[in-house]
């Protein structure tokens, strides 16, 4: 409930600020097109400000997940590092999993279990 109150408070504050701006008569009522344009800017304003927040949040440390981890997680080269396979390339990671599959097949096939694509 606490987070809902916070989010609602934020939205109400932003709305009140915007209504306040409209009521200050800085823009005369005769300038209809200008008012419409300003409202369009507001419609764009919310997503446009949320996007940078998302990016910052994505790169922010979460429970010890550092900025460098975030970056390596997003880069193709750093996938294996982010995947907890420090020093292991994607190729090596794939090979290791392939080894799991081969091992399972060697154990299960002689025992009559259908494994993988067999």
């Amino acid at each position: 409930m606490k987070h809902i109150v916070k989010i609602m408070t934020l939205l109400v504050a932003i709305s009140a600020f915007w209504i306040g701006l409209l009521k200050t008569s800085v823009v005369p009522h005769s300038h209809t097109w200008l008012r419409i344009k300003l409202n369009c800017y507001v419609a764009i304003f919310f997503p446009a400000t949320y996007l940078p927040y998302c990016i910052v949040r994505m790169l922010r440390s979460v429970n010890g997940w550092s900025r460098s981890d975030a970056l390596s997680n997003l880069s193709s080269r750093g996938i294996a590092v982010a995947a907890g396979c420090i020093g292991e390339s994607t190729y090596e990671y794939g090979k290791r999993r392939e080894a799991d599959v081969i091992e399972a097949k060697e154990f299960l096939k002689p025992r009559g279990v259908g494994v993988g694509s067999d």
């Binding site: 979460v62 550092s66 981890d69 997680n73 997003l74 193709s76 590092v81």
Partner: peptide, 16 residues
């Protein structure tokens, strides 16, 4: 999303 965790085999778009 903690240190030591991650994803493997996803495209950049899917990660984003």
């Amino acid at each position: 999303y903690v240190k030591g965790g991650g994803v493997h085999g996803w495209t950049l778009m899917r990660k984003l």
